[in-house]
């Protein structure tokens, strides 16, 4: 085997190494061969003197620093194995916790919806009252033409409906304002007292 063949074979065997790394190896062995030849060895015997190229390559590959595995730490290995072994337990606990959190969120959402039903209802009342008042008042002259008392009654109902509608509207505005303040306040409180505390616990745990 001459130098060229030796280096080509070595290059092929070291294919798994980074290019830069295998190039350093090739330079190193080329220098070794050349230094031997300079001492008077023939090219063939210089290559032979280095030993079997396969053995050299496997030696190089076995002494390459293996890329540090982050989990070589025995404590970490222990923790991971415990986590895996205990997975039936902690998975159940985690699921239960998740369910609890979801239930809590749904309850809060339901509460919001229930509370907001009040202003929504007030709004419906207002619109209904508005329609009734418009229809009654506008329709009353036609009814009066046939029966004055019935028409008068209808006119009165119309005014009452208008009054109720205005009251419902006012109620809606006041209640909405109050609820908006309350909702924002409660959400804020929830954020500060529950989620931030959860975050603190999380930080503390990690």
């Amino acid at each position: 085997m001459n130098k060229e063949e030796f280096l080509r074979t070595l290059e092929r065997l070291l294919k798994s190494l980074p290019k830069q790394e295998s190039q350093k190896m090739l330079d190193y062995y080329a220098e070794m061969i050349e230094d031997r030849m300079e001492e008077g060895m023939s090219e063939e015997s210089a290559v032979e003197d280095l030993g079997d190229v396969g053995v050299i390559a496997s030696q190089i590959l076995s002494t390459q620093p293996v890329k540090e595995k982050k989990l070589s730490n025995p404590a970490k290995v222990l923790i991971v194995s415990l986590l895996i072994l205990g997975s039936p337990l902690w998975a159940c606990i985690a699921l239960a916790l998740l369910a609890l959190i979801l239930t809590g969120l749904l309850l809060i959402l339901t509460g919001y919806i229930l509370i907001w039903l009040i202003p929504v209802l007030a709004c419906v009342f207002m619109v209904a009252g508005l329609i009734v008042c418009c229809v009654s008042i506008l329709g009353s002259p036609f009814v009066m033409a046939s029966s004055f008392t019935t028409g008068l009654l209808q006119l009165g109902v119309g005014f009452i409906a208008a009054g109720l509608s205005i009251l419902a509207g006012l109620f809606m505005v006041v209640v909405s304002r109050f609820f908006v303040r309350m909702t924002v306040g409660f959400s804020h409180w929830l954020k500060v007292h529950v989620f931030c505390r959860m975050k603190e616990v999380h930080l503390w745990q990690s």
Binding site: E31, R36, Q59
Partner: peptide, 23 residues
């Protein structure tokens, strides 16, 4: 010194080859 010279110097006392020297 350089690779081959180191191998020659050291191998008088203790067996060493190019592939053990490199690492």
């Amino acid at each position: 010194s350089y690779g081959y010279q180191i191998v020659k110097d050291v191998s008088q006392y203790i067996e060493i080859s190019e592939s053990t020297l490199y690492p």
